[in-house]
Amino acid sequence: MGLREILWAEWVAFYKDLTRRKSLIVSFIVYPYILTLLFIIMGLAVGGLTSFGQRFHVSAITFFLTMSYLMLTLLIGADMIMQRPSSDMWAGTLPYILASPAPRVLRYLAVALPMLAPFIVQGIVCLTPVYVYYYGVEGSVLALLVVFLSVLAGLFMVPIAMVIMGLAYMVSEEGWRIINIARPLLLILLGVYYPRYLLPLVFRVATMIIPSSSLVEIIQYMLINNLTMSLASVLLGIATASFILLLPIGSKTVARWEEGLRFKGVKEY
């Protein structure tokens, strides 16, 4: 039972599915721009773009475009996992998946990875021109770094998504309802809507339990050109540590949920 086979299976399944749903591909490309537009309109209503730039030392467009992109990678990594039981219930595939010996952590990493890969391309295409405009040529290096960190942040969402998914579906067969509430909450805790470095320390530390939040912080520091090497390594260390810490917890939660299903019987539609 290798990671290779599971990865390959999810990869093929995902891309075959994606390429057969044309509308999804289109929405995939325009989504970050639409989100940025939305943030900017909200921003204009609140106080104007220049005042944002003066207060937070970063242009509103750069900030919100980056955060929109980051929000997508974060959500995608988590969503693929959190929505999966629901769609597998509907397709009737869930019992066969429960009966498989595939190690759960490997499987859910495999579920998230294929979806994250196209975001590398999306990120480079979206961010590079804007960064080069605001930061000069170094902007392209910055873009690559941000893309790398964003995709990594998406991957680091896997264990927390497993925890939320397991708990939500344990509480209710219609766990996706709970997940719909958990999702915006998660984004608030992650800090993609605002500069994290302006947060009260208590809140900043508390939210570091979510592995990706430290990566969000690194990216935000990079945007204001204020990231030191030592700060970067501390934050990266915290992110990695909490990711590794959460993996067995995610695995346990999923196992509990599956065990519960074996008592109640897998619901069939």
Partner: peptide
């Protein structure tokens, strides 16, 4: 493709 997916999940080697 469906069968290949489940074969991988069931631990058949590639």
């Amino acid at each position: 493709e469906n069968l290949e997916y489940f074969a991988a999940l069931y631990g058949l080697s590639s």
